[in-house]
Simulated scan of single mutants.
Amino acid sequence: MSKRNRKPNRKKKNKAGNIISTIILIIAVCVFVVAAYQLLLNVLPYYQGGKDYDKVKALAVQTDNKGDKDAKTSDDTDLAGFQVDFATLLEMNPDTVAWIRFDEPSIISYPVVKSQDNNEYLTKTFTANDNKLGAIFVDKDCASDFSGRNTLIYGHHLNYGGEMFSRLNEYADESFCKAHPYFYIYTPDGKTRTYQVFSAGVVKDTADNYILSYATDEDFMKYIELCRSTSNYAVDVEVNAQSKIVSLSTCTNVNEDERFLLQGVLVEEK
């Protein structure tokens, strides 16, 4: 067969190859577009929720470092510059009971609410928007004024963004706790409560660490010893029968039945 007769076959092969390449490219582009769209659907709620809370902070929190310079915590941190406008918060959401704040992770600075059940704020933000971020909320069986022996507070551990209690597990590291041993809770009565971390670790969601009722002082102290025993490390801070503690709970995003539980004891109230 002559070269002249073979040329059309080469052209057909090249044309077929170009068609296959084009089809593969179109499929790849479609896969990319679908993946990008799905990623956007997953990430967008976190972005919107974060913006929602940014607006709340802008309206209700003042951090101008003005005020009584003698207002110090046990670690000599100036709290005078952080002020919460609870009148604004209560107008926005009557379920408001507090504001929680950490020096680090500083992203943990949010209003705290309480509902008649423990489901409402799993998917509803402080401003009542349906969103994966939900809200930071007190267990329905706890006193709203933090007067109980143990006040349990929940917050989500999210897959994106680091908001809510996503970075609470930084306290799994003892060195981090030593560097940032305190967190603060502000309440509508004008009080600022400083808590020192005494326990941090992963527990089952059905563990006795979630018991909230103690018939006697002895029962409460047994509970405290349990919490200390499940902590990743020991902290030299006194917790006695008269102490008031706050327990912060979030998912681990590792096993569905596990929670990261951080607990602090009240060391100062102003």
Rank of each mutant, 00 (worst) to 15 (best):
L152Q: 12
D205K: 10
N150E: 11
Y195E: 11
E163D: 13
E163G: 14
G155V: 11
F198K: 04
A128Q: 09
S147D: 08
D173V: 11
D189Y: 08
R193P: 06
F137C: 02
I136Y: 02
M164L: 13
N131P: 04
G148S: 14
G134Q: 00
V203S: 11
K140P: 09
G161V: 03
F183I: 08
R167D: 14
L158A: 04
Y160G: 03
S213N: 10
K178S: 14
Y154H: 04
G190V: 07
G155R: 02
D139S: 06
Y210F: 15
I136L: 09
N209R: 08
S175H: 08
I185T: 02
Q196K: 13
F137W: 03
K178Y: 03
K140Q: 12
Y195L: 12
F146K: 10
G134T: 02
I211N: 13
F198Y: 14
K204I: 10
S166A: 01
S175W: 05
T192D: 03
G161S: 08
E174F: 08
S166L: 00
L133P: 03
Y154E: 00
F183N: 01
K178C: 14
D217C: 14
Y210E: 02
K204Y: 14
K178Q: 13
I211A: 09
V138L: 13
G201Q: 12
D141P: 01
I136M: 04
D130T: 15
I185N: 01
L212V: 11
V197L: 10
G190T: 04
G161K: 00
H156A: 06
R193S: 14
Y182C: 09
L212I: 12
R193N: 11
Y160D: 05
D141S: 07
S166W: 00
D217I: 15
D189P: 10
T216N: 09
G161L: 01
A172D: 14
T151M: 02
I185C: 06
D141C: 02
G162A: 11
Y182E: 11
I185E: 03
K204E: 15
Y210A: 01
N131Y: 00
D219Q: 04
L133W: 08
Y195K: 06
H156W: 01
G161A: 04
Y171T: 00
L133V: 09
L168P: 06
N159S: 05
F165A: 02
D205S: 11
C177N: 14
A207G: 13
G148V: 15
Q196C: 04
V202R: 01
V138T: 03
A128G: 02
K204G: 14
N129G: 09
H157Q: 07
T206N: 12
S144N: 13
S144H: 10
I136K: 02
D173Q: 06
D139Q: 04
G148Y: 07
D130M: 14
E174M: 07
C142A: 15
D189T: 13
D217E: 15
N169V: 13
R193G: 07
S147K: 11
D208L: 12
E218K: 09
M164W: 00
I185D: 05
